[in-house]
Amino acid sequence: MTDASGTVSYSGAARTLTVAVIMSGEDPVTTSTLTAVLIAVRDATPTGIQTITVIARKAADEEKILDLSGAIAGLPKDVTPLWDGGVTLSRVDLEKLKPAQ
């Protein structure tokens, strides 16, 4: 990851933090990288943020959204991600994530 930015908005009554991360894009985003980003964002936000969305963009072309489907597929089975170009997890699911060993 080379850079990140974020915005807080409401989705219904839930406060949502959307984070755009800039990655090299040379290799596919791995589950361990995605998990590390999600944990870092989770740990840096107050509990009042109910959902977090991460969108990965390619460093060489920030208009290009990186495919996270492979990384999402490796998330724990008891986590329910929403995926539509970025990945969205609820605070409950974020709390289930553990750092890679």
Rank of each mutant, 00 (worst) to 15 (best):
63 E>G: 10
95 E>Q: 11
97 L>C: 14
83 W>M: 08
11 S>K: 09
52 I>A: 12
69 S>F: 04
57 R>H: 08
11 S>F: 10
74 G>S: 09
62 E>Q: 13
1 M>E: 12
50 Q>I: 00
70 G>T: 13
6 G>F: 14
56 A>I: 04
85 G>Y: 08
48 G>V: 06
72 I>K: 04
14 A>P: 00
88 T>E: 07
79 V>Y: 02
90 S>V: 13
45 T>K: 06
16 T>A: 13
96 K>I: 06
95 E>M: 09
88 T>L: 03
2 T>Q: 15
8 V>I: 14
32 S>V: 08
52 I>W: 04
58 K>W: 01
1 M>A: 13
99 P>L: 06
39 I>E: 02
55 I>L: 11
70 G>N: 15
30 T>Y: 01
11 S>G: 12
38 L>D: 01
92 V>P: 06
22 I>C: 09
87 V>S: 07
86 G>D: 04
67 D>V: 06
32 S>D: 15
69 S>C: 03
58 K>Q: 13
93 D>T: 00
43 D>S: 10
19 V>K: 08
18 T>E: 12
89 L>W: 01
57 R>W: 00
60 A>M: 07
40 A>I: 05
92 V>G: 00
87 V>G: 03
98 K>W: 01
95 E>V: 04
32 S>Q: 13
66 L>M: 14
94 L>G: 03
13 A>S: 10
89 L>I: 07
85 G>S: 13
47 T>I: 07
8 V>P: 01
70 G>E: 05
68 L>F: 05
10 Y>G: 05
97 L>N: 08
66 L>V: 09
68 L>S: 03
68 L>N: 09
45 T>D: 04
70 G>L: 12
65 I>G: 01
29 V>W: 05
66 L>S: 05
73 A>P: 06
46 P>D: 15
52 I>V: 15
54 V>E: 11
54 V>C: 04
25 G>P: 03
26 E>S: 15
81 P>E: 11
80 T>W: 05
87 V>L: 03
80 T>D: 09
14 A>F: 08
94 L>S: 02
82 L>F: 07
88 T>C: 04
3 D>L: 12
46 P>M: 08
59 A>N: 14
18 T>N: 10
92 V>C: 00
69 S>R: 14
47 T>F: 03
72 I>S: 02
16 T>H: 07
8 V>K: 08
92 V>I: 14
13 A>M: 05
8 V>C: 10
38 L>W: 02
3 D>M: 07
32 S>N: 06
43 D>R: 11
38 L>K: 00
75 L>R: 01
